[in-house]
């Protein structure tokens, strides 16, 4: 009976979520209800722990790794990058209010002037450009990735607070939503196939993470050492289903990140974490 209810809820969610009439807030609440029914014992804030919420042993492993993360030297390196002045003497902190503390949760946002979605990484590049420096490549984990591994920690604890207001912003959000729910690749999966409908289930030996909370903790260090930004991970997911990936920093991924991040509104941010 419970399974049937879940199936009905799942099906209505799938169709409901793709309907163009739902507002972003309706989408988010529907997903929240879906996950509440799916895992009644999981507390809202715990969704930042991804697939670990489904497995106590894995969560313990995560917690012990996070006590002395093997990647702390990389985050230190990011801190140095963040604090090293540009040639003109200014720093990244000068480009953001309050030195960029508690700001990452407001990204991505829709910039009416530019007419497009702006990610936190784009804001870092704008800062460089404004100060006469070359921009960093969005898919370069050794520069942009390392920089964000520190810069994003300045927003740890901040609650995700992405806004979608105005017709153009909603259009960008809808494009991201469409990417999320569309089947793609030779294997014919959508993002939702695994991270909504099968979230919490085990694919061979690994739990599938829920979409809720997925955007709150980037970059991650997979296996404790390999740095991935969120959009680098999108590339990896697209490749896994044998689709041609878009590029990190592409409008396609920016819109996806916009939609994806909105769903995690209200969850606490925590950058630079261990993932399997």
């Amino acid at each position: 009976m419970k399974k049937t209810l879940l199936a009905i809820l799942g099906a209505s969610l799938l169709f409901g979520a793709i309907s163009a009439n739902a507002t972003p807030e309706q989408d988010r609440k529907e997903l929240l209800d879906y996950f509440k029914h799916k895992s009644p014992n999981v507390k809202f804030d715990d969704y930042v722990n991804g697939a670990f919420i489904y497995n106590a042993d894995a969560l313990n492993q995560y917690n012990s790794i996070m006590e002395f993360p093997p990647f702390y030297t990389v985050v230190d390196q990011g801190k140095k990058m963040w604090e090293t002045p540009f040639k003109n003497g200014k720093t990244y902190a000068s480009c953001f209010p309050d030195g960029a503390k508690n700001i990452a949760g407001r990204y991505p946002y829709f910039d009416e002037g530019l007419g497009k979605v702006v990610t936190f990484e784009m804001a870092l590049n704008s800062c460089r450009k404004a100060n006469g420096e070359d921009e960093l490549a969005y898919d370069d984990m050794g520069t942009m990735g390392v920089l964000t591994s520190y810069a994003r920690t300045l927003s740890d604890g901040m609650r995700m607070n992405v806004r979608v207001e105005g017709a153009k912003a909603v259009a960008a959000y809808e494009k991201g939503k469409q990417h999320f729910y569309s089947r793609r690749g030779q294997l014919n999966f959508s993002c939702a196939s695994c991270h909504v409908h099968q979230a919490g289930n085990i694919i061979r030996t690994e739990y599938l993470s829920p979409v809720l909370g997925q955007t709150t903790h980037w970059p991650v260090f997979r296996g404790g050492e390999t740095l991935f930004t969120l959009q680098k991970r999108y590339e990896g997911c697209n490749k896994l289903v044998r689709a041609v990936p878009y590029k990190s920093g592409s409008e396609e991924y920016n819109d996806l990140e916009y939609f994806h991040s909105y769903l995690s509104n209200g969850l606490p941010m925590k950058a630079s974490v261990f993932r399997k």
Partner: peptide, 25 residues
């Protein structure tokens, strides 16, 4: 083979003792 059928990603195969998977999909 996970590059071929990869049945074990989503199906248990209780009849084959060599099938190693914890899936419940």
């Amino acid at each position: 083979n996970n590059a071929k059928g990869n049945c074990l990603a989503c199906h248990m195969l209780p009849g084959d003792p060599k099938a190693v998977t914890n899936t419940n999909i």
